[in-house]
Design a protein around this nucleic acid. Structure first.
Lengths: 209, 209
DNA sequence: TGACTTTTGTGCGCGAACGCACATACAAAT
DNA sequence: ATTTGTATGTGCGTTCGCGCACAAAAGTCA
């Protein structure tokens, strides 16, 4: 956990297909601050710039929750992608889902408050895990979201007082997921619905269409 | 100007390749507020979901500055893209550039103030125009950026007092572009440099590579 | 058990942007 | 030239998150 898979502007030698765990994509600023722009779990891949052809990207990929992943050498995936067919179609659809996630982050960052954003982040994380426990300190969560630690403390407190989450040092447990969705902004559902819509396209389309 | 090319969640029947003018991609929220997530000019295309395969996207494409564009029927572009070769490579690289732009918007929305964001938006717009005049009211700019009109008024005032821009009703003129870049946050340059890097890859690579 | 480190809690002033109200200024049309 | 509609200026209270300081609690290890 905390491993950096990709550093800003270094070549992507491998592409990762997570089986479990979560990878955070963080956009970095010169002053050291950052914001998460996407969460990637088993539904996706880390390293789209390999198939897009750009070689690298100005962001950082960090393991947020430990897990396993297939690690494919970049040239191999590049070749496979360019042979077309189902793999290419699936990856292209995933890129659209990722794009939607990043776009929604941008609006969410502007219009919604910290508590809503924390809720959104918890839900997106939960969808990519097999437990309802998130083992990160508030300090780390703050770093991921690009806010201060105290802000997370206060937002988490409110959620706990409402019996939606419970937490102790370094671990948040979601105890009422439904209410969490209710207090969350719409951004979570936009991202999730679009991801579902797109992934169902993969399943329902044959290799030639 | 102000024409809506795509509405949220409607099928993309055409793909647009602007020759002049600017198209804004706006992410909409239920309460009617929105944020621009990307600006597209002659360097790009409007309607990536056609090649990515998703059919539509949960956002809106609006003409920000009138101009001309090639309008290609979606199935035709889909076919051409899937034949591979230079066109596919170029579009994939463009998608990466667009992705970078959206990602940077997300960080910028969180960490930078209104004046910096207005500066960034002016610069990104200027790069896609052949004049240094932007013919939009502050009200419209506010709507695009997803902030209040008064905020734009005050930020624009500061820039004018520094003799970086001049404006009158419905028209902003950039008179000192260099200083505008200086007062702007790094986000502009990250987006522009990445776009340049990627587009130079298109030019320097042959059809078989 | 006691000392130490890390994590979380909280108080307070600051600054930025919101939200509203209303004043002023501009430009086109009659 | 006056009217009218639209665009811009500005004042003020509110909210939200930052930034700092420090307190309290929870683990960890000797």
């Amino acid at each position: 956990m905390g491993d950096v898979l990709y550093e800003t502007s270094t070549e992507r030698d491998f592409v990762y297909f997570p089986v479990s765990g979560i990878v955070s994509i963080l956009e970095m600023l010169q002053d050291g601050s950052s914001s998460e722009i996407a969460l990637i779990g088993s539904e996706g891949m880390v390293g789209i710039s390999v198939v897009l052809g750009g070689g690298h990207q100005p962001n950082r990929a960090v393991v947020q929750s430990a897990g396993t992943a297939y690690r494919v050498p970049a040239p191999a995936l590049y070749e496979a992608f360019h042979r077309g067919g189902v793999l290419m179609d699936a990856i292209l659809l995933y890129i659209q889902a990722l794009y939607t996630q990043v776009a929604q982050m941008a609006v969410c960052n502007r219009h919604h408050n910290l508590q809503q954003q924390l809720s959104r982040w918890l839900l997106l994380s939960l969808d990519r895990m097999d437990t309802n426990e998130i083992a990160l300190t508030q300090e780390l969560i703050a770093g991921i979201l690009g806010v201060r630690r105290e802000g997370i403390t206060r937002a988490a407190r409110v959620l706990q007082d409402q019996h939606i989450i419970e937490y102790r040092r370094g671990c948040i447990t979601v105890v009422d997921r439904q209410r969490l969705e209710e207090v969350c902004c719409e951004c979570y559902k936009v991202v999730r619905n679009e991801a579902e819509r797109l992934s169902s396209r993969t399943r329902t389309r044959g290799p030639t269409n």
